[in-house]
Measured scan of single mutants.
Amino acid sequence: NRRVIAMPSVRKYAREKGVDIRLVQGTGKNGRVLKEDIDAWLAG
């Protein structure tokens, strides 16, 4: 149960899109989840 590193704005964006942020692979520094990662996850 790893802790997800993401800015609050990215967490909010994921919530609005209905994405469980824990399932998204972060590509930022130290595995940080970026807004682009959410978009990529939604695109498949």
Rank of each mutant, 00 (worst) to 15 (best):
R22V: 10
K12F: 07
S9D: 09
R22M: 11
T27A: 05
R15T: 10
K35V: 08
D20H: 07
A40H: 13
V10G: 01
A6L: 02
V19E: 00
D39L: 09
G28K: 03
Y13G: 01
N1M: 04
K35I: 07
A40G: 12
M7K: 15
N30L: 14
D20M: 07
A6I: 05
I21Y: 05
A40Y: 13
L23D: 11
K17W: 10
I5P: 05
D37S: 02
E36M: 14
L42C: 04
K17Y: 08
Y13D: 02
I5K: 07
K17I: 10
G18R: 12
V24M: 07
G44H: 13
V33C: 04
V33H: 01
V19G: 01
K17P: 00
Q25L: 14
R11P: 01
V4D: 04
K17V: 13
L23V: 13
N1F: 04
R15C: 04
V4I: 08
V4P: 15
G26C: 03
R2Y: 04
R22A: 10
R3K: 15
I38R: 00
Y13S: 02
L42F: 11
P8A: 14
K17E: 08
L23I: 12
A40E: 11
T27S: 12
A40I: 12
K12N: 07
K12R: 12
K17C: 04
L34A: 06
K35E: 07
L42S: 08
K17R: 11
W41D: 03
R22G: 09
W41L: 07
G31H: 11
I21E: 02
V33W: 01
Y13T: 02
P8R: 15
K35L: 08
K17S: 11
R22L: 11
V33G: 00
Y13L: 05
L42M: 12
I5V: 12
S9Y: 12
R32V: 05
G28I: 03
K12L: 10
R32P: 01
T27G: 08
A43Q: 11
D39N: 12
V24Q: 02
W41M: 07
N1P: 13
K12A: 08
A43R: 14
K12W: 07
Q25H: 13
R15K: 13
V19L: 07
S9W: 12
W41H: 11
Q25F: 14
G28D: 04
T27Q: 07
W41Y: 14
D39G: 04
L23A: 11
L34E: 12
I38P: 00
V24A: 05
S9K: 15
G28A: 07
N30H: 13
I38N: 00
V10K: 01
T27H: 10
Q25R: 13
V10R: 01
I21M: 05
V4A: 04
K29G: 09
A40R: 14
R3N: 15
G26I: 02
K35Y: 05
V4R: 03
D20Q: 09
I5S: 06
D20W: 07
I38L: 05
R3H: 15
G18I: 05
A14Q: 00
L34Q: 09
R15P: 00
V10W: 01
A6Q: 02
R15Q: 08
L34M: 12
T27N: 09
E36I: 14
I21P: 04
G31L: 08
K12H: 07
G44M: 14
K35M: 10
V10D: 04
R2I: 15
V10Y: 01
G31D: 08
R11T: 03
N30G: 14
R11S: 03
A6M: 02
V24G: 01
L42D: 06
M7F: 15
A14S: 09
V19S: 02
V4H: 04
E36W: 13
M7N: 15
D37F: 00
G18H: 12
N1C: 06
T27K: 07
I5M: 05
K35A: 08
K29L: 10
M7W: 15
V10N: 02
N30Q: 11
V24K: 01
R11Y: 05
V10M: 03
D37T: 01
D37H: 02
R2C: 15
L42Q: 08
N1Q: 09
N1W: 03
R32M: 11
T27V: 03
G31V: 02
L34F: 13
I5E: 07
A43I: 12
V33Q: 02
K12T: 06
M7G: 15
L34H: 13
L23Q: 14
A14M: 01
I21D: 01
G26L: 02
M7R: 15
K35C: 06
N1A: 06
T27C: 05
V33D: 00
V19K: 00
D39E: 10
